[in-house]
Design a binder for these strands. Structure first.
Length: 230
DNA sequence: TGATTGATGTACT
DNA sequence: GTACATCAATCAC
C-alpha cells in the first residue's frame, strides 16, 4: 500500500466554539485512526449533529455529569464515545465555548479515504459499497475501529486518533452546500427535537438518510433544506 | 437490586 | 415495510 503522510490535527481552538459552529466546520474534515495491524484509517466527515449542554433535552448532558458523559463536560477537542442501543458505538467530538459546561458533535456519516479495504473488512457487511460503509453513527465506529476505549481521548494530540483539515477542495461540486434538518431519533426532546442541528454535505453518497424538512402544514417537504454556501 | 431505555443496523417478509 | 439483537447507563423502587 502507498505510504500516506499523516496530516496534522486540528487545534484546540477549532473545537472551543459553539457545537453548531464546530459541527458545520467539521464537514469535509478527515478523521484519522492509526491502528496496529490496519495502519492508518481515514475518512471524511459527511454528516454531523450538534448537541449542547444540560439545557438541550436531546443531549446526554441533560442528566448532568455522569461516568459516561464525563468527556462531554471536559475540554473541547476530546472524544466522547458511548454505546448505543446496547449494540453499536457512537463517536462524538467534544465542542463548546469557553465558559460553557458541555457540548459535542456526533459524527453520523463518513466517507472512507485511506485504508478502505481494512475499513470494509471491519464492517459486518463488507460487501457494502464504499459510500455506505460509514453511512450511520454505528457504521462510522465499525469502519474506523473506534470503541469505548477511545472515549476521553485527546483528538488534538495526533495519533492514534485525531481530526485533520479537509483533504480535498470541493470548489467545483455542490458538496460544499450544507443541508440542514432536525436531529435523528430525538422525538423525546420536546421543542429541542425540531431544531435544525443536523448538518450534511449536499450530494454526499454517504448520508445516513435523506434530509427532509417539515413544511408549515406538518407534511414532509420533498425538498431538503438548503443552507448557505460555505 | 431490578426495570426501562435508547443520538441503530441488519435480516427478513 | 417489520422484527429483533443486545447492554451500559440510568432510574424506580
Amino acid at each position: 500500500m502507498r505510504h500516506v503522510q499523516a496530516p496534522d490535527p486540528l487545534s484546540r481552538a477549532f473545537f472551543a466554539r459553539s457545537p453548531i459552529v464546530v459541527a458545520e466546520a467539521l464537514l469535509g474534515t478527515l478523521v484519522c485512526h492509526r491502528l496496529s495491524g490496519d495502519g492508518l484509517l481515514t475518512a471524511t466527515i459527511e454528516e454531523v449533529e450538534a448537541y449542547f449542554g444540560p439545557a438541550d433535552l436531546a443531549s446526554h448532558a441533560r442528566a448532568g455529569r455522569t461516568a459516561r458523559t464525563r468527556p462531554m463536560f471536559g475540554p473541547p477537542g476530546h472524544a466522547y464515545v458511548y454505546r448505543l442501543y446496547g449494540v453499536h458505538w457512537a463517536f462524538n467530538v467534544v465542542a463548546h465555548e469557553p465558559g460553557e459546561d458541555a457540548g459535542a458533535v456526533l459524527v453520523r456519516a463518513v466517507l472512507p479515504v485511506a485504508g478502505v479495504e481494512a475499513q470494509r473488512l471491519r464492517r459486518a457487511r463488507p460487501h457494502d459499497r464504499v459510500e455506505r460503509l460509514g453511512a450511520g453513527p454505528g457504521r462510522v465506529c465499525q469502519a474506523l475501529g473506534i470503541t469505548g476505549d477511545d472515549s476521553g481521548r485527546d483528538l488534538t494530540a495526533g495519533a492514534p486518533l485525531w481530526i485533520a483539515p479537509p483533504p480535498f477542495a470541493r470548489d467545483d461540486d455542490e458538496s460544499r452546500e450544507v443541508l440542514v434538518g432536525p436531529r435523528v431519533n430525538v422525538a423525546y426532546a420536546g421543542e429541542w427535537a425540531d431544531r435544525p442541528y443536523r448538518l450534511g454535505l449536499a450530494g454526499s453518497p454517504a448520508l445516513s438518510r435523506p434530509f427532509v424538512t417539515p413544511s408549515p402544514d406538518g407534511r414532509a417537504d420533498s425538498r431538503p433544506a438548503r443552507h448557505h454556501r460555505r
